[in-house]
Computed example of a mutant assay.
Amino acid sequence: MKRLYLFDFDGTLTNKDTMFDFLQFSFPKNYTTAFIRFVPIFLLTKFKILKAEKAKQKFIAHFLKGKTKDEIEILSNNYFEYRKDSIFRKRALSYVKDLAHEENKYIVTASLDIWVKPFAKYLGVRLISTQAEFVNDVFTGNFATPNCNYKQKVARVIGEIQLSQFKEVYAFGDTNGDKFMLKLATNPHFKYFE
């Protein structure tokens, strides 16, 4: 019987939001100043005046726009090496490792592929995520795909996986951004690893 496993990343498998953590780790000298500058923009998203996707894209671009794929890969791998032993929820890590024999496991995340890839590889799972846009191997500061959250998670899953071939679909999430993905599942789990 074929089973499919869909895992949100930030807060579900991990104990923190990796976007802020990755940027703070990678740019310790100017992270705080940049964050303070962006507080008004983050507040606009809280009051639904600005789309969260736009604020997120601008914040990431502030640090990474103009960097090459190679430069970003080095940052991502350094972050992975630094965090891999402390970032995962213990129950989540154990659960995913117990699925080593299962072929169809995915992280489905709004986080950018650039820093989640090493973690997905480490866990032996495939990755569906928001993707960074590169032109001539240089990050433009834009996203190549819509932010992989809310209904977009479902659109991406349906677009990349033939759901009809699975008898059971297990989905794991921890926020409202995961609720549509959880509705896809025969076995939805909310805050399962906390």
Results as ranks from 00 to 15, higher is better:
129 S>Q: 01
193 F>I: 10
164 S>D: 12
97 K>W: 03
42 F>R: 06
31 Y>M: 07
146 P>D: 06
80 F>K: 06
41 I>G: 04
19 M>T: 15
98 D>F: 03
114 I>V: 13
62 H>C: 06
52 A>T: 15
35 F>Y: 13
182 L>Y: 08
139 F>D: 00
13 L>C: 07
73 E>R: 15
85 D>H: 14
56 K>A: 08
137 D>R: 09
32 T>H: 00
188 P>I: 05
145 T>R: 01
168 E>P: 03
131 Q>L: 10
25 F>P: 06
147 N>W: 12
146 P>F: 13
162 Q>M: 11
189 H>E: 07
73 E>N: 10
139 F>T: 00
17 D>R: 02
101 H>F: 15
81 E>D: 15
58 K>R: 14
61 A>R: 13
32 T>P: 00
27 F>V: 05
131 Q>C: 12
64 L>M: 11
40 P>M: 00
97 K>Y: 08
179 K>Y: 11
149 N>K: 13
155 A>Y: 14
10 D>L: 01
130 T>L: 01
128 I>F: 06
79 Y>A: 01
31 Y>C: 07
78 N>T: 05
71 E>F: 01
187 N>A: 15
119 F>Y: 10
36 I>W: 10
182 L>S: 13
103 E>Y: 13
94 S>T: 14
77 N>Q: 11
156 R>V: 08
111 S>I: 00
135 V>C: 08
159 G>E: 14
148 C>N: 09
171 A>V: 07
119 F>E: 10
157 V>Q: 04
17 D>Q: 08
90 K>C: 03
142 N>W: 15
124 G>R: 02
59 F>N: 09
89 R>K: 15
120 A>D: 03
62 H>Q: 13
140 T>G: 09
41 I>E: 13
140 T>K: 12
186 T>P: 08
7 F>C: 04
181 M>R: 06
51 K>I: 11
94 S>P: 02
111 S>E: 00
21 D>T: 10
167 K>Q: 13
162 Q>N: 15
30 N>D: 06
116 V>K: 03
98 D>I: 04
71 E>I: 00
123 L>N: 09
103 E>T: 08
31 Y>S: 07
78 N>Y: 11
94 S>D: 14
118 P>D: 03
128 I>P: 09
183 K>L: 14
135 V>T: 12
98 D>Y: 07
25 F>Q: 04
23 L>S: 02
96 V>P: 04
149 N>P: 02
125 V>N: 05
26 S>H: 04
3 R>D: 10
100 A>S: 13
86 S>I: 15
37 R>Q: 13
133 E>V: 04
90 K>W: 00
43 L>R: 02
144 A>I: 01
103 E>S: 11
118 P>G: 02
97 K>R: 14
22 F>H: 04
73 E>M: 11
155 A>N: 12
100 A>N: 09
137 D>F: 06
10 D>P: 08
41 I>F: 00
84 K>L: 13
71 E>W: 05
87 I>D: 08
168 E>C: 09
130 T>K: 05
120 A>V: 04
63 F>T: 03
194 E>M: 00
55 A>Q: 08
105 K>A: 09
15 N>I: 11
127 L>Y: 00
107 I>T: 08
6 L>P: 08
136 N>H: 07
134 F>Y: 15
95 Y>L: 09
116 V>N: 01
189 H>I: 00
145 T>E: 01
185 A>F: 09
17 D>A: 10
8 D>M: 06
8 D>E: 05
79 Y>K: 03
128 I>N: 07
6 L>N: 08
117 K>L: 10
47 F>V: 15
84 K>M: 12
80 F>L: 06
